[in-house]
Amino acid sequence: MEHTTKTTLSQTKVPSPTPFLPIKGAIFDLDGVLTDTSELHYLAWKKLANDEKISFTQKDNESLRGIPRRESLLLILKDKKASESEIEEMMERKNNYYINSISTLTKKDLLPGARDFLVNLRAIGIKIAIGSASKNARTVIEKLDITDLLDAIADGSSVKNQKPAPDLFLYAAKLIETPPSQCVVFEDAAAGIESAIAGGMWAIGIGPKSRLERAHVVFQDLAELSVKKMNESLTRVT
């Protein structure tokens, strides 16, 4: 399995946004698609906000979906001024809170249908990558025991420009040596859907349609999705 821990793309030329079939590569966001650690992220941000005496609610947390750590922190801080060193310290503190919480994750924390869908994709020769903005993606993947089902991992350390820029997914496609136009991205966040479309890929939303209006097709979760249903739904789009 290929992976990287350093920035490799800083400026990306966006290809023509015209995906086509057949699908040869599948790129999955991690949180909200294969597992759900959103509550753990919320509790970590909430603890930090409490430390800093900042109001932070579940509704506020929803606006952080798919957003990298630094941008999330700046949204939480709002108008509160902080030096660069203070920002770095707060990001590290939040990350430590989160890492402590994910230590209890196991393969039982995979969302319904996730493992079966990954297995079925591999069975027909579709290459699989993770495209997650999280810098803790590898730790979560190991805890979920799905490393052997993946061909590559692109995470928050892989590229400079994060979602909604297309760089992360384009890098994932490069790792699995698959044309972006024949990749499908599975995302639960609007920023991720925009990223996939900007990269010229198919975008399948996982979650409520109200949040994923720009996706080519939307499913509530992977449990209701099969390879056949995926292909049929994308064929109807074309």
Rank of each mutant, 00 (worst) to 15 (best):
residue 10 S to F: 08
residue 130 I to G: 05
residue 187 E to K: 03
residue 69 R to W: 07
residue 221 D to N: 15
residue 43 L to H: 10
residue 203 A to I: 10
residue 162 Q to H: 15
residue 54 I to K: 04
residue 14 V to A: 14
residue 194 E to P: 03
residue 215 A to M: 03
residue 135 K to P: 00
residue 225 L to N: 02
residue 3 H to V: 11
residue 96 N to F: 01
residue 150 L to I: 07
residue 80 K to H: 13
residue 174 K to T: 13
residue 26 A to P: 05
residue 206 I to G: 12
residue 147 T to C: 07
residue 45 W to D: 04
residue 233 S to I: 00
residue 42 Y to L: 06
residue 164 P to S: 09
residue 9 L to N: 11
residue 234 L to D: 06
residue 218 V to R: 08
residue 165 A to D: 14
residue 136 N to D: 02
residue 51 D to N: 14
residue 20 F to L: 13
residue 81 K to F: 02
residue 128 I to A: 04
residue 186 F to N: 06
residue 219 F to E: 07
residue 59 K to L: 09
residue 85 S to K: 15
residue 155 D to E: 02
residue 224 E to R: 03
residue 26 A to R: 08
residue 184 V to F: 04
residue 106 T to E: 08
residue 2 E to W: 05
residue 129 A to F: 06
residue 134 S to V: 07
residue 26 A to Q: 12
residue 95 N to P: 05
residue 55 S to V: 08
residue 65 R to T: 13
residue 178 T to E: 12
residue 60 D to H: 08
residue 140 V to N: 05
residue 153 I to A: 08
residue 99 I to P: 03
residue 168 L to S: 10
residue 123 A to K: 14
residue 135 K to Y: 01
residue 150 L to E: 02
residue 224 E to M: 13
residue 211 R to I: 01
residue 84 E to D: 15
residue 134 S to Y: 05
residue 55 S to A: 11
residue 169 F to M: 05
residue 136 N to E: 01
residue 127 K to A: 09
residue 67 I to L: 14
residue 22 P to D: 10
